[in-house]
Each structure stands twice: as C-alpha cells, then as structure tokens.
C-alpha cells in the first residue's frame, strides 16, 4: 500500500456462478493508487470474469466492489470517465483509421480531437495514424486498443490480456507502453497468463486458479517465500559431478548430455567456490520463478 489515500480498487469476496461452475469463488483484493497489479492464472481460472465484475460489466452473485470510492454496478456514469477499459484487440468501429478510432472513442468522453495524436505517439503509432484498423498488425492493433482505453486520461486502467497472441518483439514493445502508462501515475489492473511477464511488470500479483486467489504479493516476495533451490548450470566437462557435490552448500548435482546442474539454497558460497576454480565460463543461474510458485501452490505444472 502506498500513501494514505483511498485505494483505487477494493474488491471483497465477489462470487459468480454459471450453473454448477463457480467461475469466481470468493475473490478479494485491494489495489493502491499508482500500483501495477496483475491477475495471473491459466485460461479458465476466472480472471476475465473477475475483471468484468470489477469493471461493472457483469453483476456479481455476491460481494462488493468499490472503484475510486464508487460502485461500478449498476452502470455508474459518474465513475465511467475515470476508468479506462481495454477490450479485445478487434473492438473498433468498421473501416476507420487509427486516428479516427481514437477521435471517435475520445468524443464519447468529450475529449478534444487533438488528444488522438498524443495517444498515437504514446503507443508508437504516429506513422500509422491514417491506416485503417484492419490493416494494422496484431501488435499495432493491440497498442491502438490500449490507446483507445487511455484517450480520456482515466485514473484507473483495466487491461485484459493485452499481450496475448503477440510475437515476442511486439510483447516487448507493449511492455514499454505499459511502463510509460504507469509512469504517468495511472493505476493499472491487468490480467495475463504469462507469468514471466507479470514478474517483470507488476508491483503485485494475485495468482488465480479455479475461481480463487491462491497467493497475492510482490512477485519477488512470492518467489523468495517459496524456499526453492537456486539452479546453477555449468557447461558439461568443466567440473565433475563428484567435485560439484564436494562444494559446501551444494545439495544436489546432476548431469545430462550438455550441462551440469547444481541445486543450492545458498548460492553465494557456491558461486565463489566455482569462481576460485575458474569454472565460470558459460555459467547460468536460474532462480525460482512464479511458475515454481504456481507449481508449489497447485501441485501441477503451469500451463497457459
């Protein structure tokens, strides 16, 4: 929590069932102003339903949502100008250019037409201003869709899987955009099924599975709390398995065709011992990730 002002988002114990399926089963979280909050989980975890209830698009069966001190449900015109929602990449008007899309969406909020160009610049689409939306690439459309969500300068931004189905380069471009948005002081709530991405971008994450939040904290804290060993990977041949096992702090060492992997919970003494032996060439250190956290929480491999 940063500062003593009211939180941007307060969600308490929301529930939503479709028949026997509990899509959202008692979800609670709070997002501070200016925070970048991620909701993670595999497909079908209930992320999107949660987000839709929070945005005020869907009525919850139970629970409370407060955004910037207001109730989002039923449709609350007082709140709407202060939130921005990015929907799926194709939600545009037919046959309009990038600039016209932004101008049209902006006009729904009474925003001046000049704002469109500013937004195009923010998402790096200035040179595509006069291109029709259906002629943009997937990544460009995704960025345009985020620009449309930001055109009225909302305080709170919701993004539903903005990086889904993008190639690695486009994903990285989008990360820069998201960071730029946060730098403007916006509160961002976003869903993703890329755990690595959430680890890089988010201040705090909630890991969801089967309609419930399993864990919620800063990504680093979650990983640290895991008590999982660090893996040090060496090129095969620079050190024998036996020699590796002899180093203080090493718990386990095993070898395959290309590398020798050492597991340790005390990486510092192990690395200095390896340095003394001059075996740092091609060395890689892999610490635990959110995927290990997910594995630990659910007992199954993470599959997006």
């Amino acid at each position: 929590m940063t500062g003593a002002r009211i939180p941007a988002v307060v969600v308490s114990d929301i529930r939503k069932s479709y028949g026997d399926l509990k899509a959202v089963d008692g979800v609670s979280f709070t997002v501070a102003e200016g925070e970048f909050f991620g909701i993670l989980g595999p497909n079908g975890a209930g992320k999107t339903t949660t987000l839709e209830i929070v945005e005020g698009l869907r009525q919850a069966d139970g629970g409370q949502v407060t955004l910037l001190g207001e109730q989002p449900w039923p449709r609350n015109p007082k709140l709407l100008p202060r939130i921005g929602v990015q929907l799926q990449a194709s939600s545009f008007f037919e046959k309009l250019t990038a600039r016209e899309q932004l101008q049209t969406f902006g006009s729904l909020y009474g925003v001046s037409r000049r704002k469109a160009d500013e937004m195009l610049e923010l998402v790096g689409l200035t040179d595509k201003a006069d291109v029709q939306e259906n002629k943009l690439s997937g990544g460009q459309r995704q960025r345009l869709s985020i620009a449309c969500a930001l055109v009225h300068d909302p305080d709170l931004v919701f993004l539903d899987e903005p990086t889904a189905a993008l190639d690695p380069q486009a994903r990285r471009n989008l990360w820069d955009v998201l960071r730029a948005i946060q730098a403007r002081g916006k509160t961002i709530v976003y869903t993703t099924h890329y755990l690595d991405e959430a680890e890089i971008l988010c201040d705090r994450v909630a890991i969801m599975d089967r309609g419930r939040i399993l864990a919620m904290d800063a990504p680093a804290t979650l990983v640290r709390g895991l008590d999982a060993p660090t893996h040090v990977v060496l090129q095969k041949g620079v050190l024998t398995r036996e020699a590796a096992r002899g180093i203080t702090g090493v718990e386990e060492a095993h070898e395959d065709e290309v590398s020798l992997t050492i597991s340790t919970r005390r990486p510092a003494p192990v690395l200095s011992a390896l340095a003394e032996r001059g075996t740092l060439d091609g060395l890689q250190v892999r610490t635990a990730t959110l995927e290990d956290v997910f594995l630990d929480l659910t007992g199954r491999e993470y599959r997006a």
Partner: peptide, 17 residues
C-alpha cells in the same frame, strides 16, 4: 451484431454516453 461481437457495444457501455 458486429458491434456486439467486436465488443464495440461494451466500449460504448463503458463510456459516459
């Protein structure tokens, strides 16, 4: 139909219009 499918209706619903 196309605005509903493409979620333009949603966007409009989320705007103060």
């Amino acid at each position: 139909v196309s605005w509903r499918k493409k979620q333009v209706l949603r966007r409009i619903r989320l705007a103060p219009v």
